[in-house]
């Protein structure tokens, strides 16, 4: 299935990566290569096959409702946008 420029742009927008127009073809081609590789799955009949999302077989894993300590952001080193206790960005319209 051929992915064209239009679809590639839409996908880039979905995933919020600002791919410049000049590079769209490059990513379209990579996307197509990856999709070609997965086409083989159509050869397999999976009509009544259940899905496997996780391999561990675990169920009902919960944490008890007890509060514990939070991070102290006074010591936060990644504070490029951290000012007066808030993470600050340009106004969201």
């Amino acid at each position: 299935m051929a992915v064209n420029r239009d679809i590639t742009e839409k996908v880039a927008d979905l995933i919020k990566i600002a791919i410049p127009s000049s590079e769209i073809d490059h990513y379209a081609s990579q996307l197509n290569t990856a999709l070609d590789q997965v086409d083989v799955l159509q050869e397999i009949n999976t009509e009544s096959t259940p899905i496997t999302a996780q391999t561990h077989g675990l169920t009902n894993i919960f944490g008890e409702d007890h509060a514990s300590e939070s991070l102290d952001l006074d010591d936060y080193h990644n504070n490029k946008n951290f000012r007066k206790g808030y993470f600050v960005v340009k106004k969201v319209i």
Binding site: G85, Y86, F87, V88, V89, K90, K91, V92
Partner: peptide, 10 residues
């Protein structure tokens, strides 16, 4: 929280 120019995130 929105001010005139910025959005403050908590």
């Amino acid at each position: 929280m929105h001010t005139n120019e910025e959005t403050l995130l908590d």
